[in-house]
Write a protein that binds this DNA or RNA. Sequence first.
DNA 1: CTTCATTTTGAGAGCGCTTTCAATTAGCGG
DNA 2: CCGCTAATTGAAAGCGCTCTCAAAATGAAG
Lengths: 327, 327
Amino acid sequence: MKKLTLDNIAELAGVSRATVSRVINGYPHIKPDVRERVQAIITKTGFTPNPIARSLASDRSGIIGLVIPNSPRMVFTDPYFPTLIQGISQATNRLSLTLSLFLLASTDDEDRTIRSLLSTGLLDGVIITADRREDSFVPRFMDHGLPFVLIGRPEKNADITYIDCDNFAGGYMAAEHLIKLGRRRVAIVGSNGNTAGDDRISGYRKALQDHGLVEDTALIMCGDFSMQSGYDVMKMILHAKPDAVFVASDTMALGVLRAIREAGLRVPDDIALVGFDDLPPALQADPPLTTIRQPIEELGVMAVEHLHKLIGKDAPKAVHTILPTTL
Amino acid sequence: MKKLTLDNIAELAGVSRATVSRVINGYPHIKPDVRERVQAIITKTGFTPNPIARSLASDRSGIIGLVIPNSPRMVFTDPYFPTLIQGISQATNRLSLTLSLFLLASTDDEDRTIRSLLSTGLLDGVIITADRREDSFVPRFMDHGLPFVLIGRPEKNADITYIDCDNFAGGYMAAEHLIKLGRRRVAIVGSNGNTAGDDRISGYRKALQDHGLVEDTALIMCGDFSMQSGYDVMKMILHAKPDAVFVASDTMALGVLRAIREAGLRVPDDIALVGFDDLPPALQADPPLTTIRQPIEELGVMAVEHLHKLIGKDAPKAVHTILPTTL
DNA sequence: CTTCATTTTGAGAGCGCTTTCAATTAGCGG
DNA sequence: CCGCTAATTGAAAGCGCTCTCAAAATGAAG
């Protein structure tokens, strides 16, 4: 089973290499019978064109990168990323793209990796998961001209392609849900430093306002998406006697749950709880958690699809928002 | 900032392209001053050789694949994989390799992906995470001749490079620890269908035997690494009145914990618990979990290093075992 | 049966780098 | 200084595929 080349196929089919190439790439203007003959030989021999040679000649690799900045263990441990990757992988498979992964651990790492990413030109494009530090390198991609899409709303640059879910609406729904349950002291364990968290908080605020409740700053605190931070933050909030909490991530919600329990209070009797993500952890919580569903996997799929379009031709900046639902 | 090529650098340095190539690849036999001059220009211009052209010419891409079979959400949600990936990524970064990810969702997917993986020859080698179904495609890699290393002990093929941690010892330590605590009815929530689980169970058995305890089949049951399965399985085991349990994964241990609580029993007073993995979830459990530490990240690092060696020259089959420790 | 516009093909020039192979230069002993 | 081996370089042939350009084949029109 030695390596076959275009020339081999060409010879077998009695045509020129160019013709075989055309057949493979589905060009028009090929006599049907020739196309068929070539096609037959290709399938019979199981020939696959060498992607590297192809890349060199066409200046396109079929490889896209997924850049995850800020990936200390804590962040990566949240099921959010695996789920996202799942979606991305699924989409790349379907589009016959190869996915390659870039986890930026340290800041050094970040700089070096991105530099090489850009300079080698191996990738056709990248998907970047937004992050508080996103602004430090997004401009580099823009300058360079490498197509990319952001997952998550960027802080500043409005004119770039990104895809996000409706965090504002999610926050709003969560808060509203709690309010409609008759709760008056609705707290929030948010997350600052990233737009997703900001938006969820904004949504929460708007809901309170729309329902005539006054914000109590003692009921608004932020964690960092870890279970531990949820626990810590909730402990503080408990002093302010909330009767409901909206937690901006299921993982944190688990911590929150523990804090509440330790305080001898019950969920949802004493304090009602709504999480965000709808990932497995939520379901497996002791009293199944009410949570705002976020279509993470779809987020990944769409990111790939968008990127694919960007690479192919040229689409204008697309701004997408996907709707969450209460469970 | 247009694309530079070897020729450009060569011209700037007043030497031939071949010489520049030699400098870049660190060949001997180059006059020091020439080497220096070329080097200077390279750093000044920030030139990076085009990896694709390089691959085509040298028949080596610098890309390695990570194949994760059986990646339905459940499996991928366990922090085990993210952690492993973290380690792998770190190592590939250091060795300037590019990592690309292949998640095999369905069986179709699996077949198709592997076929293309092998036929395109894009990858220099692959890391495969072992799995009950591993045997279905490992042979394909062997036949093909693509270098690969397995993470986890293979079921049959002894003559392939793999890297695993000492699951047997881990199981042994866990059981022994519980026995030394004075427990007599030590149960195990294991996992079947994969060698890691098998080995942990074997270790557990040996420990019981060595300490003169008789196995009670009602105390030996298997889950599938999910929290839910831990919960379900533990419920059954409870009927057999255990006074200790060794759970083969922290994630399952969380489920087990819940089952115990719901039965109105306390940990560790009524039932002592030891987990396996030492991943964040364990620490965040209500009473911090005692767990067998498994060096997952190192597993990834070593896998990459081994693969790198395999690709470079040729090492005989290496069989590695890394030691776990009780926490 | 020509003629001219098309449709189909093939030849061949790269893509940017690695790697012989041979030519050029240096280093040394005599 | 000359001859000879060893250290340095450069020229050029690919790697396997894409794509332009022009030639060859086909067909409609006259």
